[in-house]
Amino acid sequence: MNNTLVTPAISLRHYALVFGVCLLLWVLLVGNLAGQELLAGMVVSALVTLLFGSRFGILTGLRFSPLVPLYILGYLGYFMVALVRANLDLALRVIAPSLPIRPALVEVKTTLKSPLGRLLLANSITLTPGTLSVDVRDDTLLVHWVYCPPGTDAQQATDKIAASFERHIGRFLL
């Protein structure tokens, strides 16, 4: 399988996406849906999209399907649970007088190909129990693990750290 980084070509859909994201951000910051505010937001978003749309390459790679919003919500829910678990896990380790850590650097392979997908995966790994992304080289993520069980090989590390997130992210990103 070819795992090199892929930046899909910038299409009209991509510009529509940039416009949508800008408008969403505007509406959230303004905090209401009054006609004039919305109109101003659309003008500004269109201007930003025209001027800088081609530079938002990071936003390419999103799959287009009606279920995408659902998948994103599913990912966010899974992620928030992982974040809370990470904090409880860390709190227990920090409070325990013996400080039960067994740190190691492990390599994790990813099948995600888009820059945004890899960014999200690295971010997710950083915020989940006991792991911190250190570096991304091609399809390999270098991960610092607070408690690496003895005798773990790369495949097991990948399964434990990245596989479930990869499944969630892979549903809406290349």
């Binding site: 974040l83 809370v84 990470a86 904090n87 860390l90 709190a91 380790r93 920090v94 409070i95 400080l99 850590i101 740190p103 950083t126 915020l127 006991g130 792991t131 911190l132 250190v134 610092h144 607070v146």
Partner: peptide, 28 residues
């Protein structure tokens, strides 16, 4: 959680482990 994160910063042995404690606690 912030307080626990700071405790983690004090107790962890090296930079990488401290980062772990700091990031997760600060985010949540």
């Amino acid at each position: 959680f912030m307080a626990l994160g700071s405790l983690g910063l004090m107790r962890m042995p090296d930079l990488y482990n401290r980062l772990q404690a700091g990031t997760k606690a600060a985010t949540l």
